[in-house]
Write a protein that binds this DNA or RNA. Structure first.
Lengths: 340, 340
DNA sequence: ATAATACAGATAAACGTTTAACTCGCATCG
DNA sequence: CGATGCGAGTTAAACGTTTATCTGTATTAT
């Protein structure tokens, strides 16, 4: 590999001059510039990133800490991050925390959870990353962990701590939008199969739904609201309960596609037609949504956009450390299929 | 950040001594070692990776080039790679080629395809990675591209070129296994909904199926073999054709879960019960397989294992450059559900 | 004419390690 | 007793850049 010294020798100048030509850090005479460029081409010179970083203290590398790359929204976000970073000449060190096995619910293992995050952060810091993007939802302990960190940090997907930059999607507005969509299709008796009762997304989405109803002077009766646990089976169970009601809803808003799939199965078995007898909508636009019968109308999470935006924010923070924290909430779009 | 010089000063020794303590590269007196260790602890010293790499020429970093992280098997493989690498103190630079939009089929865009790969490789090489793992299936042009590369290279998922190390899964054996499984359940009239007719997996899986049949003295009649294109709709179309046959098969082997889902829909609509009237199996174990009615018996790709193994191979190659190429084919397992 | 300024480029010190070569004292040995 | 070898630690060069400071010449202002 040719070094700067080789080029300098070839062009008959000093390495300083070569450096200035390469980086455009100083005005040089056209002749010298030309000579150097020729020499660079001839030697097939490419600057050594390590030396550059060692000297300058910047690696042009972003550490991306993901809870689990196998989670679908995570992959989309990483994809967006990567695309945006590469366009600006940044690399990405990915570190997977392997948190898909839900140990974060089990108190005795929280230590191990923290441990994994700490290890991840150490790994990234030892890689001299210029900034870190944390991708995931389970950020409860992060404020504690990241506190003593001087590296710029952006949360993607999760909300981070209040004093940090994050970019996420809108739970409330999206749910409200979907509700309005159902209303616009003439549905007034809308039932909800919510997620886990004490979870943040459940609360926000519920709020959005109720707001949208209220705006048109309607209210969801208590017996139309059923809480599941995000899983397929709970969609089944809760829908069965709903069908027992004396006055049936005409539309069913499941807070994710998995539960919506459960709904549809029950409706099918009960001989109800979708959407004629009952409309169903979901949330997430997972792969399964396209293959349900009928294909499910649902909400698309803006994963790529979240990634893109997080990447832009981290670069901004790096180049301008005094940037105030940004809280960005990206809107979701409705994917219209045939279940309404 | 404390440097080696600080530690040396604190301990009253030279930096060389500190280096030797840190790396265990030379036998030193217990007293000196102790002094140095104390100083390291006191200064909270952690070695600078950049300086280390610059000097030693090793970065302990692997470049992972993926065709598209949003592809499901890809995420699993990356997950496996990452876990194994971190355990050995390696980092991972991930670069996504964003190839999910199927431009590789369009001849006029092959240039752009190559371009993207070249850019990716350049990015990784400029990051001074110690080795590269290529994750993807579309490796047709790679031998051409990687030829002038001196960096150790391992293919994961795809077959790479014949003279390179790769690790993939077994198409033929898995299909044979599944066929034997069907046979063991008493099915003799097995129909196949194959993938795209000229694709490699289709050919290998077909071969596996036919071998397994032959071994018990059976043969699949030509009209039981139908070619789709891996998509849901083609599962639907081909199953309709199969149902027109005078003698119906008792089992249906779709070469992926999407087509199997299509099959099941048609069978449902035709009023046939699964598995009583017809058994169905798929391939891939995508998310959808669990949520079909009944849940689909299918084949699990060993994604994590592929990743793990690829990571081990690349580290082996780095530490021992003369390692001969390894061709590893990992076996898939059958996920038994209720569709047989 | 002379001082001040601008310009183009060179010099050399850093950045934080690793490691070959060296020093120095001490035991070993024929 | 001089040569030899060894053990423990030091010295300093090297890895390939960046960049503050310096030099020397040309331009401009007074």
């Amino acid at each position: 590999m040719a070094t700067m010294r080789d080029v300098a020798q070839l062009a008959g100048v000093s390495t300083a001059t070569v450096s200035h030509v390469v980086n455009g850090t100083k005005k040089l005479s056209p002749e010298t510039t030309e000579k150097v460029l020729m020499a660079i081409a001839e030697a097939n010179y490419t600057p050594n990133t390590l030396a550059k970083s060692l000297r300058s203290g910047q690696t042009h590398t972003i550490g991306v800490l993901v809870e689990d790359i196998r989670g679908l929204p995570v992959a989309g976000i990483v994809s967006g991050i990567n695309e945006t970073l590469s366009k600006s000449g940044y690399r990405m060190i990915l570190h997977d925390l392997h948190l898909l096995e839900k140990l974060y619910n089990q108190y005795e293992q929280i230590g191990s959870y923290r441990q994994r995050i700490n290890n991840g952060v150490s790994l990234l810091q030892s890689s001299n990353v210029d900034g870190i993007i944390y991708v995931g939802m389970h950020d409860r302990h992060l404020d504690y962990l990241f506190d003593p960190m001087e590296t710029p940090l952006v949360f993607a997907y999760s909300h981070g701590t209040q004093q940090d930059t994050y970019v996420t999607y809108s739970n409330q507005d999206s749910a409200a939008d979907m509700t309005r969509y159902l209303l616009s299709k003439g549905h007034e008796r809308i039932a909800v199969i919510a997620g886990h009762p004490h979870s943040y997304p459940t609360a926000r989405r519920m709020h959005g739904i109720q707001m949208a109803m209220q705006q048109v002077g309607l209210v969801i009766p208590e017996e139309y609201i059923r809480y599941g646990n995000w899983e397929y089976e709970s969609g089944i169970d809760q829908t069965r309960e709903l069908l027992k009601l004396p006055v049936r809803p005409t539309a069913l808003f499941a807070m994710n596609d998995l539960m919506a799939a459960g709904c549809m199965r029950v409706l099918n078995e009960a001989g109800l037609r979708i959407p004629e007898d009952m409309a169903v909508v979901g949330f997430d636009n997972r792969e399964i949504a396209s293959y349900l019968q009928p294909p499910l109308t649902t909400i698309q999470l803006p994963t790529t956009e979240i990634g893109t935006s997080a990447a832009l924010h981290i670069m901004e923070k790096i180049n301008n450390p005094s940037t105030p924290p940004v809280r960005e909430i990206i809107h979701c779009s409705i994917i219209e299929r045939l279940s309404v």
